Amino acid sequence: MTGPQIVWTRIDERLLHGQIRITWGKHSEANLILVANDEAAEGPNAAFMQAGMKASAGGEYAVRFFSIQKTIDVIHKASPKQKIFILCNNPTDVARLVEGGVPITHCNVGNMHYHDGKRQIAKTVSVDKTDILAFEKMVEKGVTCTVQNTPDQTPINVLELAKTAA
């Protein structure tokens, strides 16, 4: 059996919303969006979060909400027919997936909002030391990490951006 067919992995603090469905879903040719996020899968507001995200998917995609650990545990059982778009809201979760054996080769960084303690490295991306360490772990495991808000933009290496913005 071959591994899971992961067609796109994206970090977007907003998780599943209209831009994902309209732009990235079509671009990636995914048929399943996997929201890998502990809070959305099992948190106290999970049902509310899931309802809003399912509505954003517009019925065009199968949508799953798994914790990071459940994603690691079950991703290799995916059907070969599933073209999986993994969606996380921070680089630490993607790094955990990679370290757990999820075969991610590219991580697209879209929206990581500015918060206290973070510095802006691109129009829609702000990072702190924890984020940088997570990206470094991914790169060490062979994952390409690029900032690209929409498919028509040129992808830019996230660690290069972080160095020049230092």
Rank of each mutant, 00 (worst) to 15 (best):
V125F: 05
K118R: 15
A134G: 07
R96D: 14
L133W: 10
D93E: 10
D93A: 06
G100H: 08
D128K: 03
K129G: 11
Y114F: 15
E136G: 03
D131P: 04
V94Y: 02
K141R: 14
H113I: 14
V109W: 00
R119L: 07
I132Y: 07
G110R: 01
I132T: 05
L133Q: 14
D116L: 10
T130A: 11
V109M: 00
F135L: 12
E136L: 10
V98I: 09
H115E: 14
H115I: 01
V94T: 13
H115L: 11
D128F: 08
D93Y: 05
K141P: 00
T130W: 01
C107I: 00
T124I: 06
G142D: 09
D93R: 04
L133I: 11
K129L: 05
E136S: 12
H106K: 14
Q120P: 10
K123M: 08
A134D: 08
V125S: 07
V125Y: 03
G117R: 10
D93K: 04
H106M: 11
M112P: 07
D131I: 01
E140K: 15
C107T: 13
H106D: 15
V127I: 15
A95I: 04
C107P: 04
V102Q: 05
A122N: 05
D93I: 02
K137I: 01
E140I: 01
K123G: 14
I104A: 08
